[in-house]
Lab assay of single mutants.
Amino acid sequence: GIPATNLSRVAGLEKQLAIELKVKQGAENMIQTYSNGSTKDRKLLLTAQQMLQDSKTKIDIIRMQLRRALQ
């Protein structure tokens, strides 16, 4: 079985993952909103794209940590 310490770690990672998935969803929504907007929305679009990139990276890292914890 999986050690108890790993189980609480997994629960924490799953919570983090859920949050990051919401951030990713929000960033994707912002990108959709701003991509057909005016030029003043360009900065917001770039910010949203950066957020999305960061979020995807975090999600990958969390998933990797989850896999390790579940081994």
Rank of each mutant, 00 (worst) to 15 (best):
A69T: 04
I19L: 10
S35F: 14
A18S: 06
I19F: 08
D60V: 11
S8E: 13
R9Q: 10
V10S: 02
K15W: 07
M30R: 03
N6Y: 02
I31A: 02
I61F: 12
L46K: 08
G37F: 01
A11F: 04
Y34F: 07
E28I: 11
Q49A: 04
S35H: 08
L52D: 01
R67M: 09
L17W: 02
K56E: 10
N36L: 04
L66V: 03
Q25H: 05
G1A: 10
Q53K: 12
T57P: 01
L70Y: 09
R67P: 01
V10E: 01
L17I: 02
G26Q: 15
L70C: 09
K43D: 12
I61K: 11
A69C: 07
I19G: 03
R9L: 14
R9C: 15
S38N: 10
M64C: 14
T33Y: 14
Q16E: 08
K22C: 14
R42T: 11
I31C: 05
Q49S: 03
E28C: 09
K40T: 13
K58I: 05
V23C: 09
S8T: 10
Q71M: 11
K24H: 06
I31L: 05
A4D: 11
I2Q: 10
R67E: 11
E14M: 15
L44E: 05
R9F: 11
L44G: 06
N6E: 10
L52N: 00
L70A: 07
G37P: 07
I19K: 09
K56C: 13
E14A: 14
L21V: 04
A27L: 14
R68A: 14
A11H: 08
N36Q: 12
L46H: 08
G37R: 03
A69N: 03
K40F: 13
E20P: 00
I61D: 12
N29I: 13
T39P: 07
E20I: 07
L70G: 05
L46W: 06
M30L: 12
I62W: 00
T47C: 15
A4Y: 01
M30C: 08
K40N: 09
A27S: 02
E28A: 04
M64D: 14
R42I: 14
T33P: 01
L45D: 01
A48D: 00
Q71T: 08
A11Y: 06
Q32G: 03
A48I: 04
Q32I: 12
A11M: 08
A27V: 13
E28N: 02
M51P: 00
N29D: 13
S38T: 11
Q25K: 10
K40M: 08
T39S: 10
R42N: 14
D54P: 00
K22N: 05
E20A: 07
E14L: 15
R63I: 12
A27E: 00
M51G: 01
R67T: 10
L70T: 05
T5M: 12
Q50T: 05
T47Y: 14
P3N: 12
N6K: 07
A18P: 00
R9E: 13
G12D: 14
G12K: 15
L7P: 13
I2H: 13
Q71W: 03
I62Q: 00
S35L: 13
T5I: 09
M51E: 04
D54C: 09
I59R: 00
A18V: 06
M30N: 03
A69E: 10
A4C: 15
I59L: 04
